[in-house]
Simulated scan of single mutants.
Amino acid sequence: MKKYIIITLMLVSGILFSQNIQPKLEAVNKMVKATYYHDNGGVMQEGFFKNGKLQGEWISYDETGNKTAIANYDQGKKVGKWFHWNRSSLNEVDYSNNRIASVKNWKREAIADDN
Rank of each mutant, 00 (worst) to 15 (best):
G80W: 04
I59W: 01
I5S: 06
R99N: 13
V28W: 02
L11I: 13
T35N: 02
H38F: 03
V79S: 12
Y95W: 11
I7M: 09
A34T: 08
Y61F: 12
Q75H: 02
N86Q: 09
F83W: 09
S88H: 09
F48S: 01
S60I: 03
Y4C: 08
Q75F: 07
L11S: 12
L16N: 04
K24R: 09
E26D: 05
L90A: 08
N91H: 10
R108V: 15
L9D: 04
T8W: 01
Q45L: 12
V103K: 15
A34D: 05
V32A: 04
N86L: 07
M31H: 07
D62W: 03
L9H: 02
L16M: 11
Y73G: 02
N40G: 05
N51R: 07
V12I: 15
D62Y: 01
T68P: 02
K30R: 10
V28R: 04
T35Y: 01
P23D: 00
M10G: 05
G52D: 05
A34M: 08
I100R: 05
S88R: 13
Q22E: 13
G65L: 00
I59R: 03
I7T: 12
N105G: 05
M10A: 13
D114G: 06
S89P: 05
E57L: 12
A110F: 07
N115S: 13
V93A: 00
D113R: 08
K67H: 03
V12E: 02
E109V: 12
T35K: 02
K78W: 03
A112D: 15
Y37A: 01
V93T: 13
S13G: 00
N91C: 09
I100A: 02
N51Y: 05
W58Y: 09
G14R: 04
S13R: 02
I7D: 07
V79H: 10
N20C: 07
M10K: 08
V32N: 06
S88L: 14
G42A: 15
N66F: 14
I6N: 04
T35Q: 02
Q55P: 03
Q22L: 14
N98R: 03
